[in-house]
Design a protein around this nucleic acid. Structure first.
Lengths: 195, 195
DNA sequence: TAAGTCATGTAAAAAGTTACATGATTCT
DNA sequence: AGAATCATGTAACTTTTTACATGACTTA
Protein backbone atom coordinates (compact mmCIF):
# COMPACT_ATOMS: atom_id res chain seq x y z
CA UNK A 1 0.00 0.00 0.00
CA UNK A 2 1.29 3.43 -0.91
CA UNK A 3 1.45 6.60 1.11
CA UNK A 4 -2.06 7.58 0.07
CA UNK A 5 -3.47 4.73 2.14
CA UNK A 6 -1.63 5.97 5.22
CA UNK A 7 -2.75 9.52 4.56
CA UNK A 8 -6.34 8.28 4.68
CA UNK A 9 -5.72 6.13 7.76
CA UNK A 10 -4.05 9.11 9.47
CA UNK A 11 -7.17 11.20 9.02
CA UNK A 12 -9.54 8.38 10.00
CA UNK A 13 -7.47 7.74 13.16
CA UNK A 14 -8.75 11.08 14.40
CA UNK A 15 -12.40 10.87 13.41
CA UNK A 16 -14.74 8.92 11.14
CA UNK A 17 -15.13 10.60 7.76
CA UNK A 18 -16.77 10.09 4.38
CA UNK A 19 -14.81 9.94 1.13
CA UNK A 20 -16.08 13.43 0.43
CA UNK A 21 -14.81 14.71 3.79
CA UNK A 22 -11.42 13.12 3.17
CA UNK A 23 -11.16 14.82 -0.20
CA UNK A 24 -12.00 18.12 1.48
CA UNK A 25 -9.36 17.72 4.17
CA UNK A 26 -6.78 16.81 1.58
CA UNK A 27 -7.53 19.86 -0.51
CA UNK A 28 -6.82 22.03 2.53
CA UNK A 29 -3.08 21.25 2.68
CA UNK A 30 -2.76 21.77 6.41
CA UNK A 31 -3.85 18.72 8.28
CA UNK A 32 -2.49 16.28 5.80
CA UNK A 33 0.23 17.50 3.45
CA UNK A 34 -0.75 14.85 0.99
CA UNK A 35 -3.12 15.92 -1.73
CA UNK A 36 -5.49 13.57 -3.53
CA UNK A 37 -8.68 13.86 -5.59
CA UNK A 38 -11.86 12.04 -4.83
CA UNK A 39 -11.27 9.85 -7.89
CA UNK A 40 -8.26 8.44 -6.09
CA UNK A 41 -9.82 8.38 -2.65
CA UNK A 42 -12.92 6.29 -3.36
CA UNK A 43 -11.04 3.34 -4.86
CA UNK A 44 -8.39 3.63 -2.14
CA UNK A 45 -11.06 3.36 0.56
CA UNK A 46 -12.43 0.22 -1.12
CA UNK A 47 -8.95 -1.33 -1.11
CA UNK A 48 -8.44 -0.42 2.56
CA UNK A 49 -11.74 -2.01 3.39
CA UNK A 50 -10.84 -5.22 1.54
CA UNK A 51 -7.76 -5.49 3.72
CA UNK A 52 -9.82 -4.93 6.84
CA UNK A 53 -8.10 -1.64 7.76
CA UNK A 54 -11.31 0.39 7.62
CA UNK A 55 -15.06 -0.27 7.77
CA UNK A 56 -18.02 1.84 6.80
CA UNK A 57 -21.61 2.42 7.75
CA UNK A 58 -24.19 3.80 5.36
CA UNK A 59 -25.95 6.82 6.81
CA UNK A 60 -29.24 7.86 5.21
CA UNK A 61 -29.97 11.57 5.02
CA UNK A 62 -33.04 13.69 4.42
CA UNK A 63 -32.95 15.26 0.97
CA UNK A 64 -29.29 14.36 0.44
CA UNK A 65 -27.66 11.28 -1.01
CA UNK A 66 -26.75 8.51 1.38
CA UNK A 67 -23.22 8.68 2.68
CA UNK A 68 -20.67 6.09 3.72
CA UNK A 69 -18.97 7.03 6.95
CA UNK A 70 -15.62 5.28 7.23
CA UNK A 71 -13.96 4.27 10.47
CA UNK A 72 -10.48 2.92 11.10
CA UNK A 73 -10.28 -0.61 12.55
CA UNK A 74 -7.87 -2.03 15.11
CA UNK A 75 -5.90 -3.57 12.28
CA UNK A 76 -5.80 -0.20 10.56
CA UNK A 77 -4.39 1.47 13.68
CA UNK A 78 -1.74 -1.25 13.97
CA UNK A 79 -0.72 -0.83 10.33
CA UNK A 80 -0.54 2.94 10.70
CA UNK A 81 1.51 2.76 13.91
CA UNK A 82 3.98 0.36 12.32
CA UNK A 83 4.35 2.52 9.20
CA UNK A 84 5.02 5.75 11.14
CA UNK A 85 8.38 4.66 12.51
CA UNK A 86 9.65 3.07 9.30
CA UNK A 87 12.20 5.33 7.60
CA UNK A 88 10.55 7.18 4.73
CA UNK A 89 11.63 6.49 1.15
CA UNK A 90 13.54 9.54 -0.09
CA UNK A 91 10.97 11.20 -2.28
CA UNK A 92 11.70 12.84 -5.61
CA UNK A 93 12.05 16.61 -5.66
CA UNK A 94 9.70 18.17 -8.19
CA UNK A 95 9.09 21.90 -8.11
CA UNK A 96 8.10 23.64 -11.29
CA UNK A 97 9.16 27.09 -10.09
CA UNK A 98 12.66 25.79 -9.41
CA UNK A 99 12.71 24.41 -12.92
CA UNK A 100 11.66 27.79 -14.29
CA UNK A 101 14.33 29.50 -12.17
CA UNK A 102 16.87 27.13 -13.65
CA UNK A 103 16.11 28.39 -17.16
CA UNK A 104 15.30 31.99 -16.17
CA UNK A 105 18.55 33.29 -17.67
CA UNK A 106 17.02 32.72 -21.14
CA UNK A 107 13.80 34.67 -20.62
CA UNK A 108 12.93 38.38 -20.65
CA UNK A 109 13.81 39.85 -17.24
CA UNK A 110 10.43 41.58 -16.90
CA UNK A 111 8.54 38.31 -17.21
CA UNK A 112 10.77 36.60 -14.71
CA UNK A 113 10.35 39.44 -12.24
CA UNK A 114 6.56 39.21 -12.49
CA UNK A 115 6.71 35.45 -12.09
CA UNK A 116 8.61 35.65 -8.81
CA UNK A 117 6.67 38.60 -7.46
CA UNK A 118 3.41 36.74 -8.06
CA UNK A 119 4.78 33.60 -6.50
CA UNK A 120 5.99 35.50 -3.46
CA UNK A 121 2.58 37.08 -3.01
CA UNK A 122 0.92 33.67 -3.11
CA UNK A 123 3.26 32.31 -0.47
CA UNK A 124 2.82 35.40 1.70
CA UNK A 125 -0.92 34.87 1.63
CA UNK A 126 -0.56 31.25 2.54
CA UNK A 127 1.82 32.14 5.36
CA UNK A 128 -0.72 34.58 6.78
CA UNK A 129 -3.34 31.81 6.71
CA UNK A 130 -1.00 29.41 8.44
CA UNK A 131 -0.04 31.92 11.12
CA UNK A 132 -3.69 32.58 11.79
CA UNK A 133 -4.40 28.87 12.07
CA UNK A 134 -1.45 28.56 14.41
CA UNK A 135 -2.85 31.26 16.68
CA UNK A 136 -6.19 29.51 16.65
CA UNK A 137 -4.63 26.15 17.50
CA UNK A 138 -2.66 27.55 20.41
CA UNK A 139 -5.75 29.22 21.80
CA UNK A 140 -8.16 26.35 21.21
CA UNK A 141 -5.91 23.44 22.08
CA UNK A 142 -3.67 24.99 24.77
CA UNK A 143 -1.12 22.66 26.30
CA UNK A 144 -2.19 19.80 24.01
CA UNK A 145 -0.07 21.24 21.22
CA UNK A 146 3.02 20.39 23.32
CA UNK A 147 1.98 16.84 24.19
CA UNK A 148 3.44 14.37 21.65
CA UNK A 149 0.79 11.77 22.47
CA UNK A 150 -1.96 14.15 21.39
CA UNK A 151 -3.18 14.37 17.79
CA UNK A 152 -3.20 18.14 18.31
CA UNK A 153 0.56 18.09 18.76
CA UNK A 154 0.87 16.28 15.43
CA UNK A 155 -1.36 18.77 13.63
CA UNK A 156 0.58 21.62 15.17
CA UNK A 157 3.90 20.09 14.13
CA UNK A 158 2.76 19.73 10.53
CA UNK A 159 1.55 23.31 10.54
CA UNK A 160 4.90 24.53 11.87
CA UNK A 161 6.58 22.78 8.96
CA UNK A 162 4.25 24.60 6.61
CA UNK A 163 5.12 27.92 8.21
CA UNK A 164 8.86 27.33 7.93
CA UNK A 165 8.40 26.17 4.34
CA UNK A 166 6.53 29.33 3.37
CA UNK A 167 9.01 31.61 5.12
CA UNK A 168 11.86 29.97 3.26
CA UNK A 169 10.06 30.26 -0.04
CA UNK A 170 9.28 33.94 0.51
CA UNK A 171 12.85 34.69 1.53
CA UNK A 172 14.08 32.99 -1.62
CA UNK A 173 11.60 34.78 -3.92
CA UNK A 174 12.69 38.06 -2.36
CA UNK A 175 16.34 37.23 -3.00
CA UNK A 176 15.57 36.40 -6.64
CA UNK A 177 13.55 39.56 -7.29
CA UNK A 178 16.20 41.66 -5.55
CA UNK A 179 18.86 40.07 -7.74
CA UNK A 180 16.84 40.74 -10.89
CA UNK A 181 15.98 44.27 -9.84
CA UNK A 182 19.59 45.31 -9.42
CA UNK A 183 20.37 44.65 -13.08
CA UNK A 184 17.29 46.29 -14.65
CA UNK A 185 15.21 49.48 -14.56
CA UNK A 186 12.52 47.68 -12.66
CA UNK A 187 12.38 48.23 -8.90
CA UNK A 188 9.97 46.77 -6.36
CA UNK A 189 7.18 49.25 -7.14
CA UNK A 190 5.16 46.67 -9.06
CA UNK A 191 4.78 44.53 -5.98
CA UNK A 192 3.66 47.48 -3.87
CA UNK A 193 0.94 48.44 -6.32
CA UNK A 194 -0.54 44.98 -6.53
CA UNK A 195 -0.56 44.14 -2.85
CA UNK B 1 4.40 18.64 -23.00
CA UNK B 2 4.89 18.21 -19.28
CA UNK B 3 7.51 19.68 -16.98
CA UNK B 4 9.88 16.80 -17.66
CA UNK B 5 10.36 18.03 -21.23
CA UNK B 6 11.32 21.48 -19.96
CA UNK B 7 13.65 19.99 -17.39
CA UNK B 8 15.48 18.26 -20.22
CA UNK B 9 15.46 21.37 -22.41
CA UNK B 10 16.78 23.42 -19.48
CA UNK B 11 19.79 21.14 -19.18
CA UNK B 12 20.38 20.96 -22.93
CA UNK B 13 20.22 24.76 -23.16
CA UNK B 14 23.51 24.79 -21.27
CA UNK B 15 25.37 21.99 -23.01
CA UNK B 16 24.77 19.02 -25.29
CA UNK B 17 24.24 15.81 -23.32
CA UNK B 18 23.37 12.15 -23.78
CA UNK B 19 20.32 10.54 -22.20
CA UNK B 20 22.67 8.93 -19.74
CA UNK B 21 24.21 12.29 -18.79
CA UNK B 22 20.75 13.77 -18.32
CA UNK B 23 19.78 10.94 -15.99
CA UNK B 24 22.97 11.56 -14.01
CA UNK B 25 22.31 15.29 -13.67
CA UNK B 26 18.76 14.62 -12.56
CA UNK B 27 19.86 12.18 -9.88
CA UNK B 28 22.06 14.90 -8.42
CA UNK B 29 19.20 17.15 -7.26
CA UNK B 30 21.16 20.37 -7.52
CA UNK B 31 21.19 21.63 -11.05
CA UNK B 32 17.68 20.57 -11.86
CA UNK B 33 15.32 19.93 -8.93
CA UNK B 34 13.33 17.62 -11.10
CA UNK B 35 14.14 13.94 -10.77
CA UNK B 36 13.58 11.38 -13.51
CA UNK B 37 14.85 7.89 -14.38
CA UNK B 38 16.43 6.95 -17.64
CA UNK B 39 13.32 4.94 -18.51
CA UNK B 40 11.43 8.22 -18.61
CA UNK B 41 14.20 10.25 -20.22
CA UNK B 42 14.83 8.17 -23.34
CA UNK B 43 11.21 8.21 -24.55
CA UNK B 44 10.93 11.91 -23.60
CA UNK B 45 13.97 12.72 -25.76
CA UNK B 46 12.38 10.89 -28.68
CA UNK B 47 9.19 12.94 -28.27
CA UNK B 48 11.16 16.19 -28.09
CA UNK B 49 12.99 15.24 -31.26
CA UNK B 50 9.73 14.49 -33.08
CA UNK B 51 8.60 18.02 -32.28
CA UNK B 52 11.88 19.43 -33.51
CA UNK B 53 12.91 20.83 -30.12
CA UNK B 54 16.12 18.78 -29.95
CA UNK B 55 18.39 16.93 -32.40
CA UNK B 56 21.02 14.30 -31.88
CA UNK B 57 24.27 13.08 -33.36
CA UNK B 58 25.55 9.54 -32.92
CA UNK B 59 29.08 9.49 -31.59
CA UNK B 60 31.05 6.26 -31.96
CA UNK B 61 33.41 5.33 -29.16
CA UNK B 62 36.34 2.95 -28.76
CA UNK B 63 35.36 -0.04 -26.63
CA UNK B 64 32.16 1.60 -25.43
CA UNK B 65 28.66 1.61 -26.88
CA UNK B 66 27.78 4.37 -29.30
CA UNK B 67 26.14 7.38 -27.74
CA UNK B 68 23.55 9.86 -28.90
CA UNK B 69 24.53 13.40 -28.02
CA UNK B 70 21.45 15.63 -27.91
CA UNK B 71 21.43 19.33 -28.67
CA UNK B 72 18.65 21.87 -28.23
CA UNK B 73 17.35 23.54 -31.42
CA UNK B 74 16.25 27.13 -31.99
CA UNK B 75 12.66 25.98 -31.68
CA UNK B 76 13.54 24.26 -28.40
CA UNK B 77 15.03 27.47 -27.01
CA UNK B 78 11.92 29.43 -28.04
CA UNK B 79 9.62 26.90 -26.37
CA UNK B 80 11.71 26.94 -23.20
CA UNK B 81 11.84 30.74 -23.05
CA UNK B 82 8.07 30.98 -23.48
CA UNK B 83 7.42 28.40 -20.79
CA UNK B 84 9.66 30.05 -18.18
CA UNK B 85 7.47 33.12 -17.71
CA UNK B 86 4.15 31.28 -17.70
CA UNK B 87 2.79 31.02 -14.15
CA UNK B 88 3.45 27.54 -12.76
CA UNK B 89 0.57 25.22 -12.00
CA UNK B 90 0.30 24.93 -8.21
CA UNK B 91 1.84 21.55 -7.55
CA UNK B 92 0.52 19.03 -5.05
CA UNK B 93 2.27 18.82 -1.72
CA UNK B 94 3.46 15.29 -1.02
CA UNK B 95 5.95 14.67 1.76
CA UNK B 96 6.00 11.30 3.43
CA UNK B 97 7.75 12.54 6.58
CA UNK B 98 5.02 15.12 7.10
CA UNK B 99 2.50 12.34 6.77
CA UNK B 100 4.36 10.32 9.38
CA UNK B 101 4.52 13.35 11.65
CA UNK B 102 0.78 13.69 11.28
CA UNK B 103 0.25 10.22 12.75
CA UNK B 104 3.24 10.28 15.12
CA UNK B 105 0.99 10.63 18.17
CA UNK B 106 0.00 6.97 17.72
CA UNK B 107 3.49 5.48 17.63
CA UNK B 108 6.07 4.62 20.28
CA UNK B 109 7.94 7.82 21.20
CA UNK B 110 11.35 6.13 20.87
CA UNK B 111 10.70 5.15 17.28
CA UNK B 112 9.51 8.62 16.40
CA UNK B 113 12.56 10.20 18.01
CA UNK B 114 14.88 7.97 15.97
CA UNK B 115 12.95 8.75 12.81
CA UNK B 116 13.39 12.48 13.18
CA UNK B 117 16.99 12.30 14.38
CA UNK B 118 17.89 10.23 11.32
CA UNK B 119 16.05 12.57 9.03
CA UNK B 120 17.76 15.58 10.55
CA UNK B 121 21.14 13.97 10.05
CA UNK B 122 20.39 13.31 6.40
CA UNK B 123 19.39 16.91 5.83
CA UNK B 124 22.44 18.19 7.71
CA UNK B 125 24.66 16.16 5.41
CA UNK B 126 22.92 17.46 2.36
CA UNK B 127 23.19 21.01 3.65
CA UNK B 128 26.93 20.60 4.10
CA UNK B 129 27.18 19.38 0.50
CA UNK B 130 25.16 22.32 -0.75
CA UNK B 131 27.21 24.85 1.22
CA UNK B 132 30.36 23.37 -0.20
CA UNK B 133 28.99 23.57 -3.72
CA UNK B 134 28.00 27.14 -3.03
CA UNK B 135 31.53 28.04 -2.00
CA UNK B 136 32.85 26.38 -5.11
CA UNK B 137 30.37 28.25 -7.35
CA UNK B 138 31.25 31.61 -5.86
CA UNK B 139 34.95 30.95 -6.33
CA UNK B 140 34.75 29.42 -9.79
CA UNK B 141 32.07 31.65 -11.30
CA UNK B 142 32.74 34.94 -9.49
CA UNK B 143 30.51 37.82 -10.53
CA UNK B 144 28.54 35.60 -12.93
CA UNK B 145 26.49 34.26 -10.03
CA UNK B 146 25.00 37.77 -9.68
CA UNK B 147 24.22 38.27 -13.37
CA UNK B 148 20.62 37.17 -14.14
CA UNK B 149 21.43 36.66 -17.81
CA UNK B 150 24.05 34.04 -16.95
CA UNK B 151 23.18 30.35 -16.55
CA UNK B 152 25.49 30.43 -13.53
CA UNK B 153 23.14 32.84 -11.79
CA UNK B 154 20.29 30.39 -12.40
CA UNK B 155 22.24 27.45 -11.00
CA UNK B 156 23.25 29.52 -8.00
CA UNK B 157 19.64 30.60 -7.41
CA UNK B 158 18.43 27.01 -7.46
CA UNK B 159 21.18 26.01 -5.06
CA UNK B 160 20.23 28.82 -2.68
CA UNK B 161 16.69 27.47 -2.64
CA UNK B 162 18.09 24.08 -1.75
CA UNK B 163 20.08 25.56 1.11
CA UNK B 164 17.09 27.41 2.54
CA UNK B 165 14.99 24.26 2.16
CA UNK B 166 17.48 22.15 4.09
CA UNK B 167 17.89 24.74 6.84
CA UNK B 168 14.15 24.87 7.30
CA UNK B 169 13.88 21.11 7.40
CA UNK B 170 16.67 20.81 9.96
CA UNK B 171 15.15 23.51 12.14
CA UNK B 172 11.83 21.69 12.05
CA UNK B 173 13.34 18.27 12.83
CA UNK B 174 15.15 19.85 15.77
CA UNK B 175 11.91 21.36 17.04
CA UNK B 176 10.18 17.99 16.78
CA UNK B 177 12.93 16.05 18.56
CA UNK B 178 13.11 18.73 21.26
CA UNK B 179 9.37 18.48 21.74
CA UNK B 180 9.54 14.70 22.01
CA UNK B 181 12.54 14.82 24.30
CA UNK B 182 10.81 16.97 26.85
CA UNK B 183 8.15 14.36 27.48
CA UNK B 184 10.38 11.26 27.66
CA UNK B 185 13.58 9.95 29.23
CA UNK B 186 15.38 10.32 25.95
CA UNK B 187 17.58 13.38 25.46
CA UNK B 188 19.66 14.41 22.48
CA UNK B 189 22.58 12.14 23.39
CA UNK B 190 21.72 9.62 20.67
CA UNK B 191 22.26 12.19 17.97
CA UNK B 192 25.62 13.22 19.42
CA UNK B 193 26.88 9.66 19.48
CA UNK B 194 25.90 8.90 15.91
CA UNK B 195 27.23 12.05 14.30
C1' DT C 1 35.50 -12.09 -9.27
C1' DA C 2 32.24 -8.91 -8.02
C1' DA C 3 30.74 -4.31 -8.24
C1' DG C 4 30.57 -0.05 -10.62
C1' DT C 5 30.50 2.95 -14.83
C1' DC C 6 29.06 3.83 -19.46
C1' DA C 7 25.20 3.35 -22.65
C1' DT C 8 20.35 2.64 -24.53
C1' DG C 9 16.26 0.95 -24.69
C1' DT C 10 11.26 -1.64 -23.62
C1' DA C 11 7.40 -3.46 -20.70
C1' DA C 12 4.49 -3.80 -16.97
C1' DA C 13 2.57 -1.83 -13.09
C1' DA C 14 1.38 1.81 -9.92
C1' DA C 15 0.09 6.47 -8.94
C1' DG C 16 -2.17 10.56 -10.17
C1' DT C 17 -5.09 13.85 -13.15
C1' DT C 18 -8.93 15.08 -15.91
C1' DA C 19 -13.19 14.21 -17.60
C1' DC C 20 -17.64 11.86 -17.53
C1' DA C 21 -21.94 10.84 -14.97
C1' DT C 22 -25.85 11.86 -11.72
C1' DG C 23 -28.89 14.51 -8.70
C1' DA C 24 -31.05 17.17 -4.78
C1' DT C 25 -30.45 21.32 -1.94
C1' DT C 26 -29.01 25.79 -0.64
C1' DC C 27 -27.04 30.17 -1.30
C1' DT C 28 -26.44 34.52 -4.19
C1' DA D 1 -31.24 31.49 -12.87
C1' DG D 2 -26.71 30.04 -11.89
C1' DA D 3 -23.22 28.57 -8.75
C1' DA D 4 -21.77 26.12 -4.78
C1' DT D 5 -22.21 22.25 -1.56
C1' DC D 6 -23.08 17.53 -0.56
C1' DA D 7 -22.25 12.84 -2.19
C1' DT D 8 -20.30 8.75 -4.85
C1' DG D 9 -18.55 6.60 -8.32
C1' DT D 10 -16.12 5.14 -13.24
C1' DA D 11 -13.17 5.74 -17.45
C1' DA D 12 -9.54 7.44 -20.06
C1' DC D 13 -5.33 9.30 -19.94
C1' DT D 14 -0.76 10.86 -18.33
C1' DT D 15 3.10 10.41 -15.41
C1' DT D 16 6.27 7.88 -12.73
C1' DT D 17 8.39 3.67 -10.88
C1' DT D 18 10.21 -0.86 -11.11
C1' DA D 19 11.78 -4.50 -13.58
C1' DC D 20 13.60 -6.72 -17.71
C1' DA D 21 17.30 -6.83 -21.27
C1' DT D 22 22.12 -6.43 -23.05
C1' DG D 23 27.15 -5.80 -23.05
C1' DA D 24 32.03 -4.10 -22.80
C1' DC D 25 35.35 -1.94 -19.82
C1' DT D 26 37.35 -0.57 -15.29
C1' DT D 27 38.31 -0.66 -10.49
C1' DA D 28 38.59 -2.86 -5.86
Amino acid sequence: MGALGYAILGLLAREPLTGYDLAGQMRARVGSFWEARHSQIYPALARLEQRGLVTHQVVAQHGRPDKKVYEITGGGLDALRAWVTEPPAPRAVRDELLLKAFSSWLAEPGGVLTLFQDERRRHEERLRDYEQTRGWMEEAWGEDVRRPESPHFASYAVLRRGILQERGYIEWCRWVTDSLGRGTDNDDAGAEVRL
